[in-house]
Amino acid sequence: MLLEVTGLSKRFGGLVAVSKLDLSIREGEIRGIIGPNGSGKSTLFNLISGVYQAEPGGRIVFAGEDITGYPSHEIARRGIARTFQLLRIFTQMSVLENLLIGYHPHVRYGSAAATLGSASVWTEERRLKDEMMELLGFIGLTDYAEIPAGELSIGQRRLLALGRAMAMRPKLLMLDEPAAGLSPVNVDKLLSTVLALKQRYGLTVVIIEHILKVVMESCDTVTVLEHGEKIAEGAPAAIKDDHRVIEAYLGKEMGDAEVRAFLKAS
């Protein structure tokens, strides 16, 4: 298993956001995570990526190493890249610079060499700029390399957020609602980009998504959360018909007796 989460919980005051969650992600799979609003999907991402600290008792093991309680940057350095629901791209920096920030963990020169402006820094910067231009071509933003990221459209920003995560050369890519707010055409474009990236770099991908089309078409396995608990897990086709999942999304189907009681009460 690439990622093994056991007994993970998170409380905010009295509210239980994630409760004793177990999750195993196989290397090379695409995992979808779905669930109604407030079911703990994003909290799960924040726990895995070290933004939040889990309650005692939870454990997160990545590639054989226990990373529970590690700070964010250490987790990122070990190969977990994520995107944010609200993107959080660096709007005042150029598109190319955004990608270069993603590449930060792999920069090879030290602070002293950087301060003195040695030739090795210059060659390394040129090399990684070339490399990032290639990635930029892959996500289709080459023309915008030197434009401030804040001037991009929403669709382009989503692609850039994906590109920044990819620049980290991750083993595990976690996407938090990558297709939210996109037009159907752009959803397809984003989906094919994710699949192409996965093919090319041999990634493992976890996707939180509300657009069911994305989940059904691209995921190998789907995990369904409700109230911070896992209520179902399996192949997309099986999940679609699971009565607990339908209940979670649409509410419980009422029996005759219940309907009568409900009508009487109102």
Binding site: S49, G50, V51, P71, S72, H73, A76, R77, A81, R82, F84, R88, I89, F90, T91, Q92, M93, E97, I101, G102, H104, P105, R164, M168
Partner: peptide, 14 residues
């Protein structure tokens, strides 16, 4: 510059 703009995102980038 990254930590000036968004230190949370910067940390997520390592």
């Amino acid at each position: 510059k990254a930590l000036r703009e968004d230190s949370l995102a910067a940390a997520a980038c390592g």
